[in-house]
Simulated assay, not measured.
Amino acid sequence: MGNWITERLRDERGDVPGWVLITLMTAGLVIVIWGLAGPALSGVFDQAIGRVLGF
């Protein structure tokens, strides 16, 4: 059993696992979308709070 794990690790040495790339790309997308939509969402939130407090 230990031999199988050793061979598996040796085969992937030097390769970046797929989950690492997916995680980095997802984080990049979140940062880009947050940067573009953040000010608009902030304005919508402020407007909604203003209406609630206006009652």
Rank of each mutant, 00 (worst) to 15 (best):
V20E: 13
P17K: 11
F55D: 01
G43C: 06
A37P: 07
T23A: 15
V32I: 02
A27T: 13
S42G: 11
D15Y: 10
L21I: 10
T26W: 06
L36D: 09
A48S: 05
T6V: 05
D11I: 04
W34F: 14
E7A: 10
E12Q: 05
V44E: 10
V30I: 15
W34C: 10
V20M: 12
D11G: 01
I31Y: 13
G50L: 01
G38E: 06
G18I: 11
V30K: 01
R8G: 03
V44K: 11
G50F: 00
G14S: 09
V20R: 12
N3Y: 07
W19R: 08
L24A: 15
G18P: 04
D11M: 03
M1L: 15
F45W: 03
R51Q: 05
F55I: 02
L53Q: 12
A48I: 08
R10Y: 04
W34T: 15
V20T: 12
L41P: 01
T6A: 11
G28Y: 07
L41S: 10
T26I: 10
G18M: 11
D11T: 03
G35H: 13
W34M: 14
G35W: 15
F55W: 02
T6M: 06
R51A: 09
S42R: 08
V52S: 01
G28W: 04
M1C: 10
V30S: 06
D15R: 09
T26E: 10
G28P: 04
W34R: 15
A40P: 05
R13T: 02
